[in-house]
Design a protein around this nucleic acid. Structure first.
Length: 372
DNA sequence: TAGTCGTGGGC
DNA sequence: TGCCCAAGACT
């Protein structure tokens, strides 16, 4: 209750701001200083959509080449609807958070069938699409359709926490609505697209997490934190706890024709539907890990294999866990049959399959071991 | 609500 | 080096 009163007081700071002047300063800066990005060439709702999904938790510089390639391969709703999921995942390979790609294609297919290929401009309809949350819905609606909806991401929370002196913990999911209400009171109705993009651009270029460039800021005269000298104390963001470690033993296995044995991961969970080299979690570290892998592969894949020397040790860090992989090379002596999720492929054929970065590292270690 | 879900860059 | 981060969504 006391907290709610505090929030109301913070948002009441908006009353002290000349909203029109703020919009003018912010949008004027954006018009002059915005980066030249490939998804800003036009307002095609499909391309805006693709870019927003790719940009989730991902840096602009990382996204740019993926965006170019993806749009070249899948230029329209129709093209992505008709594509094989394998091709889509291959285009996403290395970008991370792979459920984004599968959800995007699923949602695009729904738009293709249910909305005659037109991305809905209704908040409820667009929010119902798989992978489209509150931020992405607002981003597409405002950028592609000029609809004054909030698009609150991490940038916007950081920027507005400083400008309005909001001391909510932005790590909490419940805080987002506080910032959405603030945006609703501040947003330009004549240019909601530039308003939302400008808040994010400001966060990316000026109002950065550590040591913001306040002296270059186009809206510093509107900024409560700048006037109070609290810009480095905001936003409040609680720490994330450290994650766990998992020991993995893996092997690059080839048959007498030199073909590689690869396996498709399950359709749910970590790295869903991506391909990998046979591997197993080491649950009993005191027992020979090569024997554990051999037994597991024999049981799971109905194969008889031999594991030879180690080719490398790889540490791969995810958001919430770390894999410590011991990688070996070996041979497939006998395999009952291939399956949808179990293939023997040539080195050339393997390029068509999507692998996580950790397994690309394993392959790289194998190649280097063969060169010696 | 808190955990899951990737990767590479920056300090 | 280890940590935090970067235009979040889902369960």
């Amino acid at each position: 209750m006391e907290e709610q009163i505090l929030i109301n007081n913070e948002i009441s700071q908006l009353n002290k701001i000349d909203a029109a002047k703020f919009q003018q300063d912010l949008i004027g800066w954006f018009e002059a200083e915005q980066r030249d990005l490939p998804w800003r060439k036009d307002q095609d709702p499909y391309k805006v959509w693709v870019s927003e999904i790719m940009l989730q938790q991902t840096r602009v510089d990382t996204v740019i080449p993926y965006f170019h390639n993806f749009i070249e391969q899948f230029p329209t709703i129709e093209a992505l609807s008709n594509a094989d999921e394998e091709k889509v995942l291959k285009a996403w390979e290395g970008l991370g958070y792979y459920s984004r790609a599968r959800n995007l294609q699923s949602a695009v297919r729904e738009v293709h069938e249910k909305y005659d290929g037109k991305v809905p401009n209704d908040p409820k309809e667009i929010s119902s699409l798989k992978g489209v949350g509150p931020y992405t819905a607002g981003a597409i609606l405002s950028i592609a359709y000029g609809i004054p909806e909030p698009a609150v991401d991490g940038n916007v929370m950081r920027v507005l926490s400083r400008i309005l002196s909001i001391w909510e913990d932005i790590a909490k999911a419940s805080s987002r609505k506080v910032f959405e209400e603030a945006v609703r009171k501040l947003i330009s109705h004549s240019n909601p697209s530039f308003f939302n993009q400008a808040l994010m651009e400001l966060g990316a270029l000026i109002c950065t997490p550590t040591s913001p460039s306040c002296l270059l800021c186009p809206v510093r005269e509107h900024c409560h934190a700048f006037h109070e000298g609290t810009e480095k104390d905001l936003p409040i963001k609680t720490k994330t706890k450290k994650h766990r470690h998992v020991q993995i033993v893996a092997a690059v296995l080839r048959n007498n024709e030199g073909k590689f044995l690869i396996h498709k991961r399950p359709s749910k969970g970590l790295l869903a539907n991506l391909w990998e080299f046979p591997n197993v979690e080491v649950l009993l570290p005191h027992i020979n890990e090569k024997e554990q892998l051999k037994d597991a592969v024999k049981e799971l894949f109905k194969t008889d294999i031999e594991i030879d020397e180690m080719i490398g040790q790889i540490e791969h860090v995810f958001s919430h866990l770390t894999w410590n992989i011991n990688a070996y090379k070996g041979q497939v002596h006998f395999m009952e049959k291939e399956a949808e999720d179990l293939r023997l492929v040539t080195a050339e054929e393997m390029k068509e399959f999507s692998f996580s970065v950790s397994h690309q590292k394993i392959l790289q270690q194998f190649i280097e071991s063969e060169e010696e």
